[in-house]
Computed example of a mutant assay.
Amino acid sequence: MQEQGWANNSNGTYETRFSNLGEIYYCIASILKYAPFINRIYVVTASQVPEGLSSFPASGLCSEDRIVVVDHTKIFQGIPEALPTFNSLTIETMLWAIPNLSEYFLYFNDDVFLNAPIAKSDLIGADGKIVLRGKMRPIWPLEAKYRLRNLRCKILRNRRIAAHFKTAQMHAAKLAGLSQYLEIGHHPHIIRRRTFCEFFAQNPDVLARQLQHKFRSIDQFLPVGLANHLEIASGNAVVRSPLGCAYLRPQTVNRDLLAQLFHPDIAYGCVQSLDEFEPKWRAKFMRIMRAKFASHLPADARSQVDKDDQAVA
């Protein structure tokens, strides 16, 4: 794959980023179960409708208009040169353009889910300020690493340096004029739509540079991070300690981590690259999730777990 003349070996092109084992079912079921105050769930796709998505309203788990599929062409309307895109950072940058989106919205990756009930007060305080979860860190160590990576990229020439989550947060903090960045984890994020609208209206060049990348680039900012840092810079946010997150990855998954899925004090969960889990751990995880969300999962999602169990047996 090529982008702007470079051979693309970015971590944004790994096959696992395009796999699907029904993670989105758990994400939606968790919202229905643990955040009933969320009025509408928008699923952003590229000319696709996730298999079985309609089974949620068909099973009586929500109203027919509760889950809305939004095609890329809707959020990139007027910017056809940005499509097609295979870049989550590019897509996240345009979420504010979803038609009829609320002023405040909660952003989930499809591998993120609620592990326990949350309240509106966990997201927006009584004073109206956005509640951000993370820790403030100095920018300079990340900036030094970023410069070294860019130097390496020039020396190696036809090699693309993989994008980094923290580097993208650093870029976002600098755009907001801060000398520190908010280090965040893999969990849902509260965003104010107007923050994006106003910033990009005033900085169209920043938006254009961000959208030119078809695949993840080390030069891109984290859209959620930009929203966070703009709110911090304007005094419209309060930073609090992170809520617990059961963070499951192929390299680290074990019984103790799976046990966190039963803990009521761990608000969030994230399962990265479920397709790369050892079969026994993948099956255990899916059985737990099936039981955890049995009351909010349609039959289509439960049957997928049965198939995986049979493959492991």
Rank of each mutant, 00 (worst) to 15 (best):
R290P: 00
R149A: 13
A119T: 13
A58I: 03
I38N: 03
F108P: 02
R282D: 01
A29D: 04
I75F: 08
F215K: 07
N115Y: 12
V49E: 13
M170S: 02
Y42Q: 03
Y181S: 04
F37G: 00
R159I: 14
I139G: 06
L274P: 01
I28T: 00
D300P: 07
A208C: 11
L114C: 07
L258E: 04
N8F: 08
Q251N: 13
M286C: 05
E81P: 06
L123H: 03
D256V: 14
A58Q: 14
F200P: 09
G12M: 04
S54E: 11
R240G: 08
F293A: 00
R193N: 05
C153W: 13
P141A: 01
N20R: 09
F56Y: 12
I288V: 04
R255I: 09
P279V: 03
A163K: 08
A119E: 13
A7Y: 08
A301S: 11
Q180E: 13
W6E: 12
L142V: 01
A208T: 13
A46V: 00
L156P: 05
H213F: 14
L248F: 02
E3Q: 14
S121P: 00
I218V: 08
E51S: 01
G134E: 00
E51T: 00
F105D: 01
L123A: 06
Q169D: 10
R249P: 02
M94K: 12
H72G: 01
A162Q: 02
Y42V: 00
K145I: 14
V224F: 12
A29H: 06
T85R: 02
A119L: 10
K174P: 06
E23V: 07
A172Y: 03
T16G: 01
V68K: 11
H189L: 05
A233S: 08
A301T: 05
S47A: 13
D122E: 05
V224T: 15
V238K: 10
S63Y: 04
P250C: 06
R137M: 15
H296I: 11
I288H: 02
N9T: 12
L156C: 11
L95T: 12
